[in-house]
């Protein structure tokens, strides 16, 4: 529940953003994000809400970290499971624009 997942903002419309998470797109709300968000920015997403715009110099490191996590595809790895669950929810949720 606590792990956020970073994604790239594709489009912004009011308080809603379309965000790409490793090829999966979902709608993320911008109500509580800490800084103005534009297409091309990266945000940290937590339960469907962006909670932080990831500063430019930190994007690469942040993504590398999650890539490592996702590659550790041990049969049952709770942390990777949490991240995958976040991504899976993106596929199922909100009308599933990438179903």
């Amino acid at each position: 529940m606590c792990l956020g997942v970073p994604g790239r903002v594709v489009a912004v419309e009011g308080l809603l953003a379309t965000v790409d998470f490793w090829g999966v797109r979902r709608t993320v709300r911008l109500d509580v994000v800490d800084a103005p968000v534009l297409p091309g920015d990266y945000v940290l997403n937590h339960v469907g809400f962006a909670i932080r715009r990831i500063p430019e110099p930190e994007i690469e490191e942040t993504l590398a970290l999650y890539e490592t996590l996702l590659r550790s595809m041990e049969a049952e790895d709770p942390m990777a499971d949490d991240v995958r669950a976040e991504l899976a929810a993106a596929r199922e949720g909100e009308g599933g624009d990438e179903r």
């Binding site: 606590c2 469907g48 993106a90």
Partner: peptide
């Protein structure tokens, strides 16, 4: 997955819908 979905579900119906909201401050913000 998100409390936002619970609100959407409530908008789509007339009956009472309760969201059991758990989690620390990061989740409470949503």
């Amino acid at each position: 997955y998100s409390v936002a979905q619970a609100v959407d579900a409530a908008r789509a119906c007339d009956e009472e819908l309760v969201f059991f909201a758990t989690g620390f401050e990061t989740t409470a913000v949503a």
